[in-house]
């Protein structure tokens, strides 16, 4: 028990790295996923094939392989990257990890958004066209807002998966929550205590993420709920 209290500050420090690398990757990944999804739903093969290939690769290979590829793979092209002035970034494990997580989640998120875009009811699009909207305006006002709303439950899953997948970054020497737990456990041999504590911290943060998504979902689905001042019946007689 004592070892848990002793290691808690270091574990929380690790948890902080886990949280901010997740947040950074989620935000960057989403920014990348929106254009990717738009390319993916395009009917022009020049647009959809590269997007399809990208999504196919990042969904089809293990994240661990992607991390190794970018981290140790970039080490092999050090001179080339140096010439391009990129080595200062690839030199840092944090950059490599955040880049891999971003690219990975962008692939998954793009696929979630593609499904959502294609699930936007045809009638709404027709109505928008009838009102004279087309192209970017149609996407900005009607399709994307609706698609985001539709995608939210699946997207919250993706964020939780990504958060948990960050535990892999300890492999490339980053001191995230898992990394810290491994180092302390290896020294103290208190594997059970350390990993259960790390597990509980992951659990708390995961439910924190889910809570935020629940709030957002609630806020975005106001139009689907009865208004608070709706009158359902007058003197026992239903009004509608």
């Amino acid at each position: 028990m004592e070892i848990i209290w002793q290691s808690l500050p270091r574990l929380l420090e690790g948890a902080w790295l886990t949280v901010h690398i997740t947040a950074l990757s989620v935000v960057m990944g989403l920014l990348l996923a929106v254009p990717l999804a738009l390319l993916r739903v395009s009917r022009n093969p020049l647009f959809w094939t590269p997007a399809y290939g990208y999504i196919f690769y990042f969904r089809g290979t293990p994240l661990l392989v992607q991390i190794f590829l970018i981290y140790y793979g970039s080490g092999q092209f050090q001179t080339e990257l140096d010439a391009l002035g990129l080595w200062v970034f690839f030199r840092q494990a944090y950059f490599c990890a955040a880049l891999t997580l971003t690219l990975n989640t962008a692939g998954y998120t793009a696929e979630i958004l593609r499904g959502a875009i294609q699930a936007v009811p045809h009638g709404e699009i027709e109505a928008a066209r009838a009102s004279g909207m087309s192209g970017w305006l149609l996407y900005r006002r009607i399709i994307l807002p609706k698609a985001f709303r539709l995608a939210l439950p699946a997207y919250s899953n993706e964020v939780v998966f990504l958060f948990q997948a960050t535990s892999l970054v300890s492999i490339i020497s980053l001191m995230d929550l898992t990394g810290v737990a491994r180092v302390i456990a290896a020294r103290s041999f208190a594997f059970y205590q350390l990993y259960i504590t790390a597990g509980v911290i992951y659990l708390i943060i995961t439910y924190g993420i889910l809570f935020i998504f629940k709030k957002v979902e609630f806020r975005l689905s106001g139009h689907l709920r009865d208004r608070k001042d709706t009158v359902l019946a007058v003197d026992g007689v239903p009004v509608r």
């Binding site: 140790y72 080490g75 092999q76 050090q78 030199r91 494990a93 492999i171 020497s173």
Partner: peptide, 17 residues
């Protein structure tokens, strides 16, 4: 910087990390 294997530690020495 701690690595799972000694070979990975060598890789990062070579890459200059």
């Amino acid at each position: 910087n701690s690595y799972a294997t000694q070979d990975e530690a060598y890789l990062d020495l070579v890459s200059g990390r």
